[in-house]
Design a protein around this nucleic acid. Sequence first.
DNA 1: TAGTTATTGCGATTTTGTCGCAGTTGTGTT
DNA 2: AACACAACTGCGACAAAATCGCAATAACTA
Lengths: 125, 125
Amino acid sequence: MKSIITQLTQAGYKCTKPRKEVLDFLEKNHHAISAQDLHKQISKVDRASVYRTLNLLEELGIVNIENFNNEKLYCLSAEPHHHIICKKCGFSEEVPCTYEHYNFSNFSNVQHQMTLTGVCNKCNK
Amino acid sequence: MKSIITQLTQAGYKCTKPRKEVLDFLEKNHHAISAQDLHKQISKVDRASVYRTLNLLEELGIVNIENFNNEKLYCLSAEPHHHIICKKCGFSEEVPCTYEHYNFSNFSNVQHQMTLTGVCNKCNK
DNA sequence: TAGTTATTGCGATTTTGTCGCAGTTGTGTT
DNA sequence: AACACAACTGCGACAAAATCGCAATAACTA
């Protein structure tokens, strides 16, 4: 947490209350969360500020985006992993990710995000 | 095309003009396209019907969704491939996909979609 | 060809995200 | 500790994307 704040200030950004609210929540929360839902959880922070903060944190690499069902979900950068989602009921499991980097001749700083979908056993009966 | 229509009717759905319009377009179009843009191309079909049709076709596995820049792009199910996108300028390349299936104990019918992002050489100067 | 049922088109509505701007807050400096 | 200044917030308006209900219509079935 300390390191995140210094990361912010050293990049020339202020450490404001709304930003702390967002970071605090993301630290306590162990699942990725959408901007909407995050705003519901910390509703005293304005919607626009939540969006602005998340965009900033993403630019700085402090949070990662998971593309879940075509919704952006945010979480503090951590172990790379994916999810597999049941198309019918939404049940999901984490899938560990064993590779971190790809090499491409025309690109650098390559990150990846994978969405797996399927039908879970329960829905398949 | 014939097979797609029988696939529709056998699933109990009608083969209507709007649905044919959508399928015709997707067959001729070689790139994935957003619902919005598809509606612009076949504007005589109502916006809501375009959305409803795409959702249906996706449920039936007739079209695939590519998550491009957090926008849903639709195309007829075909050769699996991915894209890599420059975060700054949007430049993209196709990335062939060499694997088709993953095995999971709790899921069947597993499909995957991966988004790669990076910074292209031009933007990196 | 008539009956029934799914589907369409339309307009209204919801959801999601952004913008501009006046007022406020954080930070570094004196 | 108070000041100064830029960055930031909250607010309301706005824009874009997608969905919904419903009356009218079109597709299949007998």
